[in-house]
Amino acid sequence: MELNRIIYVATYAGKILLESGGETYRVEDTIGRICNAYGIRKVESFVVPTAIITSAVSDEYKSKAVIKRIRNRSFNLQKIVRVNELSRKIQSEPITIRELYAELKAIDQANSYPLWLSSLFYSFISSGYVLFFAGSFLEMVNAFISASVMRLSMYIFEKDNYNVVFIHVLGGAVAAVSTLLLVYFGVGVQSNTILISVLMNLFPGLILANAIRDIMAGDTLSGVARTTEALLIAIAIAAGSGTVVALSMKWLGSGAV
């Protein structure tokens, strides 16, 4: 029974990491550390972006396997850090497996950044990019507002677990609509600079970085899967924003963009 609990809790820790944007090698390392901390030396894990398969063998040659399906993925570096620290802490400061599970549950259920704060981050990042591209103050204001509107619209569908590709198509389209409308009413002139600055929030940089890490570490399957996901997200952003820009040029003329 103890073997069952240990491997289940270890895989649960890996699930939190993978759902929070953790790398494949980190998930496998964390599962191994937790199992080793509770006396299980023979443990193997197979991790891809959508699933974790873990098997372990006790000293009595009893074996157990657990499969965890990953359906929702986001980016929460705070959860990654906390699980990472916890998996190392239990090696020097042992706790019971039930206490470990309770701590992991608390980490998993911890609230992420509130909507108003994430919207504010999006807005400041977009305004910063406009400044980097030598945009005017009005264009910074446009980017600030457009980024916030984009984040709010995406949140409505994120909380209902809509497909990530659809969410990014929507985000690109809303960003383009908001940017072009504000330019039309005189808030800024260079709509292309503003739109690029707003869309930078959606660029799948962390996914691409993790893909390269996985490939360099020999986890080719995970690396290719993450690369494909990043490409799909990039195409979705381009499709959403590009469609709106193309329609505005057709209906309002090239001067609208």
Rank of each mutant, 00 (worst) to 15 (best):
Lys79Leu: 05
Lys79Cys: 00
Ile80Leu: 05
Val81Lys: 10
Val81Ser: 02
Arg82His: 02
Val83Met: 04
Val83Thr: 03
Asn84Trp: 01
Asn84Val: 03
Glu85Gln: 12
Glu85His: 05
Leu86Trp: 08
Leu86Arg: 12
Ser87Glu: 09
Ser87Tyr: 06
Arg88Ala: 00
Arg88Lys: 10
Arg88Thr: 02
Lys89Glu: 15
Lys89Leu: 09
Lys89Ala: 05
Lys89Pro: 00
Lys89Arg: 15
Ile90Lys: 10
Ile90Arg: 11
Gln91His: 07
Gln91Ile: 14
Gln91Ala: 08
Gln91Glu: 15
Ser92Tyr: 09
Ser92Asn: 12
Glu93Trp: 00
Glu93Thr: 13
Glu93Asn: 13
Glu93Gln: 12
Glu93Ile: 01
Pro94Cys: 02
Ile95Arg: 14
Ile95Gly: 14
Thr96Tyr: 04
Thr96Lys: 08
Thr96Arg: 11
Ile97Glu: 09
Ile97Asp: 00
Arg98Glu: 14
Arg98Leu: 10
Glu99Tyr: 02
Glu99Asn: 08
Glu99Gly: 02
Leu100Thr: 06
Leu100Cys: 04
Leu100His: 04
Leu100Asn: 05
Tyr101His: 10
Tyr101Lys: 14
Tyr101Gln: 15
Ala102Gln: 11
Leu104Val: 03
Leu104Cys: 00
Lys105Ala: 04
Lys105Tyr: 08
Ala106Ser: 10
Ala106Gln: 12
Ala106Ile: 10
Ile107Asn: 05
Ile107Cys: 02
Ile107Arg: 10
Gln109Phe: 01
Gln109Val: 03
Gln109Asn: 11
Ala110His: 05
Asn111Val: 06
Asn111Ser: 12
Asn111Met: 09
Asn111Cys: 01
Asn111Ile: 13
Ser112Pro: 01
Ser112Trp: 00
Tyr113Ser: 04
Tyr113His: 09
Pro114Gly: 01
Pro114Gln: 07
Pro114Thr: 03
Leu115Trp: 10
Leu115Glu: 04
Trp116Leu: 08
Leu117Met: 11
Leu117Trp: 11
Leu117Pro: 03
Ser118His: 08
Ser118Met: 07
Ser118Arg: 14
Ser118Cys: 02
Ser118Leu: 06
Ser118Tyr: 05
Ser119Pro: 15
Ser119Tyr: 03
Ser119Met: 13
Ser119Ala: 14
Leu120Arg: 07
Leu120His: 06
Leu120Ser: 07
Leu120Thr: 13
Leu120Trp: 07
Phe121His: 14
Phe121Asn: 14
Phe121Leu: 08
Tyr122Val: 09
Tyr122Glu: 08
Ser123Arg: 04
Ser123His: 06
Ser123Lys: 14
Phe124Gln: 14
Phe124Leu: 13
Phe124Thr: 15
Phe124Arg: 14
Ile125Asn: 11
Ile125Ser: 15
Ile125Phe: 05
Ser126Leu: 03
Ser127Trp: 03
Ser127Phe: 07
Gly128Lys: 01
Tyr129Trp: 13
Tyr129Asn: 12
Tyr129Ile: 15
Val130Trp: 02
Val130Met: 01
Leu131Phe: 03
Phe132Thr: 08
Phe132His: 09
Phe133Arg: 06
Phe133Gln: 11
Phe133Met: 07
Phe133Lys: 06
Phe133Gly: 15
Ala134Arg: 15
Ala134Cys: 02
Ala134Pro: 00
Gly135Ser: 05
Ser136Ala: 01
Phe137Val: 11
Phe137Glu: 12
Leu138Arg: 11
Leu138Thr: 12
Leu138Val: 04
Glu139Trp: 02
Glu139Asp: 06
Met140Glu: 12
Met140Gln: 05
Met140Pro: 14
